[in-house]
Every structure is written in C-alpha cells, then in structure tokens.
Write a protein that binds this DNA or RNA. Structure first.
Lengths: 269, 269
DNA sequence: AACCAATGGTTCACATAATGAACCGAACAA
DNA sequence: TTGTTCGGTTCATTATGTGAACCATTGGTT
C-alpha cells in the first residue's frame, strides 16, 4: 500500500459520530504505528486537510476540503454524473432509468436514459414532478425521510392517478417499513397505467435521502426474473450514484452481501 | 518534501478556471516527473479525491471531498456562521461582503453576500484565491501575520493584477504599519479594476489572523461618507465574527471606543 | 500514406523517504 | 511512589518512491 493511500485512508476514520480523533486512537483505528500516524497527520495538517482542535491536541477535518468541495460542486453538476449512471443502469436492465431529486416537498425528474433494446418503453418528461405516494421513487425517498415529511405528505389528500394508486395512509406506512427492509421500493401502475417501477434512494453527505434512482418497465415485460435483476441493479447503481455525489447511505440501509460497489474503503490491513 | 505532501499539493492546481488537468499538464504544473504524477494521481483516484472525467482521461476533483466537507461543516459550521455575519454586513453597507480564510500561504474565499440595493455590484466566486499583496483582505491578514509569512510573501515576485496593484515590498510594509494603526485595510483597484474594498482581519483562538472579512464596492459609488461607514461596519462585524468563531483579537488591535455600528442602514440611502 | 508532436501510461535500476520499536516528558489516578 | 495513559520524537533498517527512457494511441500536417 502506498504512503499516500495510507495518509488518505486516515481521513476515512472521521465520521459524524467521531469528528475528533487523537493520535493514539488514530493509530489504533488504522493499525499503523503511532510514529507513522504522527507524520502522516502532520503532512495532512500542513496541507490543511486536518487541523488540531484548540483544546486537546486531537485532529479534525481541516479547511482545505472546503475549497475542493466548492470546486467539485462547480465542476460536476449532478445531472452529468447521474446521466452516466443512468446509462449504465438502462443498459443493464434494458429498460428506462431515471433520477429524481427532492426540491422542497416535491420530487422532480432530473435526468433519464432509455434502453434501445425494446421497441416499447416507458417514456419520461423533463422536470416531471413525481407524486411521493404514487411512485416508486417517491416511496423510496419517503422511506428514508424524517417523520415530519412523511406525516405532512400522508395527511394531505392523496390523489389517485390510476385505479391502482395506493391512497390509504396506513397502507403506505406499512409499505415504507417494508421498503426500509428491502432497500428498494416498488410501484405497479401507481402513477401511469401499465408501468412497473423499482426505485432506490440517493443519500446526501448527511445520510438523508435527497432523491431516487428508478427503473420503469412496461408491466407486460415484468416477471420474477426481470424484477429480481432490476432490484439488484437499481440498488447497486443507486449506491454508486450516492457515492459519486459524495453522499453515503445510513447505517441501517440494507447491504447486499454479494455486490461490491467500489468505494472509499478504509484500511484493508 | 514528503510523498503525501506532494500528492496533496497536486490537488492545489485545480482551480475554478482549470477544473480538468491532464497527466502531462499536471507534471508540468507541479514540476514532478510524469511517472510520479501518474502514480500519485492513481492513489488520489483510488481514494476518491480525484477521478478521471468521462471523455478525455483528464483528472478532476473527486467525490470523496464532498463527504469530508460535510463532516467539516458539521464539526465547524464556519460557513453558516460567516454567512449570517456577511448578510448583516452587506445589509448595513449595501455592498458586497465576503469572508476568506488562510489556507497554507494563500487566502481563499469561503462565503459572501450581496446587497440587493444596487443594480451594479462586485461579484465573487466560490473558492476564489485572493493574492495577499493585492487585496484588502490579504493586506489585513498580512498586517497581523508573523514576520516569517510577511517576508516570504514580499520576497516572492509580486505580480500586478492591475496597473494600480502595489508591487513594491517597501511600500507594502509601510501600508501594513498603517493598517495595524487603523485595524482596517483598504485596496483601490488592486485586484479588480473599479473595485474599492475595505477589510478587517479575523483572529483565531491564539490571536493569530486566520482570515478577513471585506466589503467591496464599485469605485464610482465610493465617497468619504460611505468609506467611513464601511470601515466602521467591517471592523465591527469582523470582531463579531472573530468572537463567534471562538477567537479573539490581539491586545494591540485598535478598538473604536465611540462607534457602535449596530444600526442597519447608512445615512445616504 | 507517412510523418510529427502531442497525449496517457509503463518499466526498472537506483536512492530517497517511510517505517516502527523503543524512547521521552507530561498528565492523571490509585 | 508506581502505573497508566497521552502526544510526540529518535534512528537504524529497508520498503517505498523516483525518473530517464520506453510504449501505444491519437490527431493534425504535409
């Protein structure tokens, strides 16, 4: 393992729950020698990536990352990043993939990608507003949203877009629990007739659901095999997009044991 | 120079104007061997600090910094705190207010606020790097910086951003003495043409200057009354921000006994 | 087609820079 | 006192990083 990799891996041990780490703690966490950690932290500190908190001599994330984050935000608009992931997702599933973001209390479509494989496909509109209770994307977001939002949405009148739209608040709450267990939401003809969609949430840097990635297929093409494939794909790609956008899933988000989506892994040592 | 320092220094070459950098360019910019840069960028990429943009094989800042920035912001909500102070300052002066922090040996913009009053205003960019000798913020910081830093900055070649930029080290040293007497630095068209700015330093918990708050106005609007108002406001708000961030001014920082610039609008409005 | 000058990327002999066991002085507790 | 921690330092050993020279591609010129 390269020296730089070691140094950068140290940054991975800072979390929301553990924003301050002392020298000895860091040595323990990383499994590296205390002297090594000291030198690496010194270099990180000199570059402004960490700094020593005033009172103790513990370290915390430094100001340099703010500058880089501002650059990243400017250089990489979310749509472009999402477009890439959606293309992969629609290729993998041979169906329509789309990405939507919460804006205020509504969910609106940001980007989508079609698969060229089938002649019939689910089509999307730019900036379409998705109802939270009637779409798989909306349910995926709701399942990982704070109670306030869920209550606000479910106490408002729930309009039925189709005869299949679920409008009973109690039924939806039960659904949300199930979604949290699965990590994937599902909707059959809830928003558009004859559309069967699966969605997984996208999380921001605080671990809050900020949107969702979904795959929508005509109901006639859906069967158990395709559904299983889509569920796995959408979940994997949603995790990938979450990471690409700099967010990370909450601790209780169900992990599939098999798929290993590359991420900023901590020390393997 | 340590390997880690070299790797991290590469990140410093990304700017707003240059968000994508190729391998050869990076080697040129950093003065390092291409093979070295390749390996370092590889390690940075593996950790998510850079990534290779889809089209070319050029590098850009990666998603990992977003996570760290969120952590930093959570631990040290400087940006939020500053935003509040800047809003008050721009309201009070009816001009653009901004806050910048020293990172290593450069000063970079952290936050800013515009006043809605005038149609023309000085505009800012996120994460813009301010030259220490050519901006009021830079001079304010230098005036309260240790001798080493001042010497290092003034012995390097001082580039002139505009014809009005002061590039004579002796002249700048004289200026710094004056700034220490006033507690406020001033720059007329030193960084951008037709911009007149005033700045006051922000101190950390040890009483060292760690950044500056400034108000920038179009030169055409500047007159004695506005200048006096801005000087008082920027000084008062800088002191306030210093305190809010847990720092305090050094003993020799000039205190204005009389003006209490709590009042919002200037007389001229 | 042939040529040139870029690009990103790779190799390997060499030496610089990283490593870690043992050490220090300072707090704090029993 | 003794025994813990803690952050930080030293220095012989060697793993790690380095860079001149090398490919393989690409895009532009002649």
């Amino acid at each position: 393992m390269g020296t730089t990799t070691k140094a950068l891996s140290l940054l991975g041990y800072f979390t929301r729950a553990r924003p301050l780490i002392g020298l000895s703690d860091m040595a323990r966490l990383s499994g590296l020698n205390k002297a090594t950690v000291h030198r690496l932290m010194g270099e990180l500190a000199q570059a402004g990536f960490v700094e020593q908190a005033g009172s103790g001599r513990e370290y915390r994330i430094g100001p340099a990352v703010m500058r880089l984050a501002a650059l990243r935000e400017h250089a990489v608009p979310m749509r472009d990043v999402a477009a890439q992931v959606l293309r992969d997702l629609s290729d993998a599933t041979e169906e329509t993939a789309h990405f939507s973001l919460m804006q205020g209390q509504t969910l609106s479509t940001v980007a989508y990608a079609y698969s060229p494989v089938h002649g019939t496909r689910v089509t999307m509109e730019d900036a379409e507003v998705l109802m939270l209770h009637a779409t798989s994307s909306g349910l995926a977001v709701l399942a990982y949203s704070p109670r306030d939002l869920v209550d606000a949405v479910l106490q408002a009148p729930l309009t039925a877009r189709t005869p299949q739209t679920i409008t009973d608040p109690a039924e939806i709450r039960a659904l949300l629990t199930e979604i949290r267990a699965q990590g994937v939401a599902e909707s059959v003809s809830g928003f558009e007739e004859d559309v069967h969609s699966h969605a997984a949430p996208i999380f921001d840097a605080r671990g809050c659901a900020m949107g969702a990635v979904a795959v929508a297929a005509p109901t006639v093409r859906m069967d158990d095999a395709l559904a299983a494939h889509i569920r796995a794909s959408v979940k994997a790609q949603a995790l990938r997009l979450t990471r690409m956008l700099g967010g990370f899933p909450p601790a209780d988000y169900p992990k599939d044991s098999h798929d290993t989506v590359a991420g900023p892994a901590p020390a393997t040592a």
